[in-house]
Simulated scan of single mutants.
Amino acid sequence: MARILITSALPYINGVKHLGNLVGSQLPADVYARYARARGHEVLLICATDEHGTPAELAAAEAGEPVADYCARLWQVQKDLVDGFRLSFDHYGRSSSPENHALTQHFAGRLADNGLISEVAERQIYSAADGRFLPDRYVVGTCPNCGYPRARGDQCENCTKQLDPTDLIEPRSAISGS
């Protein structure tokens, strides 16, 4: 009997998941877990909502809620869908949980102790008007590839070139325009 850990791709917290989302990521993990359990293996099937980053922040702002409140509300909606489809997760958590933070820090510490993590310097755009560093989707400007004036910091919607916010010509905050 093998011990098998199965994880599913973490769905972004923003938006209610539909059948296509489930079929694309969570259902295959569930089917394999059921198969492995039926074969007598010890299985742990886990998943969580991804509550970090720009998608959560943008959705919470659009809903007019603090990010933590928005994530708590949408986690319950997604958990109810998982339960409604009778997926067999042993644990359906949240990326924002203290347990996940502690586990992530543990693994990062072990990797660093073994010399497997090196420092990376990254240039970021800071908005004094907004009082913060801006994630790529919060930066707009002119695409250096095609000249499109409303390119986002992650990708130009006109030419589809993937971008870094610091590559944009005349980058500005999508929040304040500064």
Score class of each variant (00 low, 15 high):
93 G>T: 04
16 V>C: 02
32 Y>N: 05
65 E>T: 01
44 L>A: 13
62 E>S: 15
44 L>T: 11
19 L>E: 12
42 E>F: 03
39 R>W: 09
114 N>C: 08
14 N>C: 10
83 D>H: 15
69 D>C: 04
37 R>W: 05
118 S>K: 12
86 R>M: 15
88 S>R: 07
27 L>Q: 09
31 V>Y: 10
42 E>A: 08
45 L>A: 09
113 D>K: 09
98 P>H: 05
17 K>A: 14
79 K>I: 00
47 C>Y: 00
66 P>K: 08
89 F>N: 03
35 Y>Q: 13
73 R>W: 07
11 P>G: 01
2 A>L: 07
77 V>M: 11
15 G>W: 07
75 W>D: 02
28 P>F: 08
4 I>D: 03
57 E>W: 02
2 A>Y: 06
63 A>N: 05
25 S>H: 04
5 L>W: 09
51 E>Y: 00
15 G>C: 07
104 T>K: 08
32 Y>L: 14
92 Y>N: 05
6 I>S: 02
106 H>D: 13
29 A>I: 02
59 A>I: 04
74 L>I: 11
66 P>R: 13
89 F>P: 01
48 A>N: 05
13 I>M: 01
41 H>L: 06
51 E>L: 03
92 Y>W: 14
48 A>S: 09
109 G>V: 03
72 A>V: 05
44 L>I: 07
31 V>W: 07
49 T>Q: 07
3 R>I: 15
48 A>W: 04
61 A>I: 05
4 I>L: 12
60 A>N: 03
22 L>Y: 13
20 G>K: 05
5 L>K: 11
